[in-house]
Structure formats: structure tokens, C-alpha cells
Nucleic acid binder design. Sequence first.
DNA 1: TCCATAGTTCGGATATTACGAACTATGGAA
DNA 2: TTCCATAGTTCGTAATATCCGAACTATGGA
Lengths: 113, 113
Amino acid sequence: MRPFFHPAIESVQPEAILHALSDPNRAAIFANIMREGGIKTCSAVSALGDRVIPKSSLSNHFKVLREAGLIRSERHGVEMRNHPRWTEVEVRFPGLLAAIISAYAADSQASGE
Amino acid sequence: MRPFFHPAIESVQPEAILHALSDPNRAAIFANIMREGGIKTCSAVSALGDRVIPKSSLSNHFKVLREAGLIRSERHGVEMRNHPRWTEVEVRFPGLLAAIISAYAADSQASGE
DNA sequence: TCCATAGTTCGGATATTACGAACTATGGAA
DNA sequence: TTCCATAGTTCGTAATATCCGAACTATGGA
């Protein structure tokens, strides 16, 4: 288990962010991490909505979010805590994350949530 | 050559938009279409920056943008004209497209344009 | 009718993604 | 200490998507 790679904020690419959040599962995970009191550990999300996500897929989703520069993961004892890198990303790409998250919210609102 | 499919604006999904624009080539094409006096036909973009994009790939890029609900394509004589569906998308997902396009602009700005 | 232009479709090589099974790391209990 | 439970990663492979050259289709002139 090699240590995690977290890109420096200057080398975070818009395409990586869009790609990471173009998967609805990942977007939901990230939106949850962004919320105050949101998911911090991986296992806390093992079922998202009504869909069960296998551990290995989940692990990969967190990796994609991490390598896109969206979250920072650090081990605390036996578990992993994931924090959003919102303020950093906001400085580099103002308004981007908020627009994406509210787009998903608007969509789930519209489609009979 | 079956007629093009353009999704109704209500059925445009955020994930499709993010996926379409998570490819830098497509994002550049779309940004150009968005600009007043931007690219209208497909062949007008055959070289983007210094990279040559094959016709078939280009055709596919336009298809992805179209099916994501980002552009509307219609034939005019021998060529295809592509218009952005900006105002429609803006109503459904306010601020999304502007944030994405300016994120790419900020990035190319920063990385020695 | 024939040709040039503009773009699409097909097909196969290549790259990504998904997920079960096996593994690693940490903390606590016996 | 040893053993177990928890939390998560890595590996391998099957399914899926993407890229791009070659062949095709559609339209408007000469």
C-alpha cells in the first residue's frame, strides 16, 4: 500500500475534475464529502441511494477523486478520512464545483427525486 | 446517414455534459462554437492548436457534444452548422457552462498558454 | 453524369472501467 | 504476543468505450 498521491493545486487539470465528476456515483460521493457533516470514511458510503457499490470500485472512486485534486485522504487509525479541497480548487477554478454540484441537484430535483 | 438525435432539454443529464467536456479537444471545440463568430462547420476545426484530429474522431466529438445536449447540428447544403444550445442549458443548469469554460481558460492561462 | 466537398459509419486495435478475490495495515481483545 | 475484526488497496480478467484509417453517403456544382 504505497502512500497516496495528492497533486499540487497548480497541477490540477479541469479535464480531470470534469472526468471525476462525470460519474454520478463519484459526484454523489463528492457532494456528500462537501456537505458539512458529510461522509468522511469510505465505508460510510458503501450503499449510495439504493445501489450497492463493491469495495474495490469504491476504492477506485476515491482514488479518482483524489488524483483529480478534489479530495485529500489521510489515515486516522484504521480508517481513512477524506476532506474536500474545496477552498484550493475554488481559488483556481472559481465557481466550478458549486455549479457542478448544483447541476446534479437540479437534475435529481427535476427527475422525480 | 440517419437524422441526428438532439435530446430534449429536460432530458439532458449533467453527467453527459461533464463527460462531453472532460475531453480537452471537445471542450476546445465547444468553447469555440460558443464564441461569437466561432467555428460553425466540422472541417473548420480539423486542426486544433497544433494537433491534427482525424475526420472520424472529429465526427465522433461532434456527436458526443450533440447527444450531451450541448450543440444543435443542422445541415446547410453540403456542410453542417453547429450552434450552441447555451440559453437552454443555462436555464436548466445555471452557471455550469460558463464555469467550465472559464476553468479551461484559467488553466491554459496558467500553464504557459 | 461526374467530381469535389463535408461528413458519417464500420471494424479492429487499444485503452478504461468494473468488480470479485486475495492481500495489507491498524487497533483492540484474549 | 497472538489473533481477530475493521478498513481499505491491489490484482486479474471480463466487459465497455475510444481512437482512427478506410470505405461509404449526401449535397452542390461543372
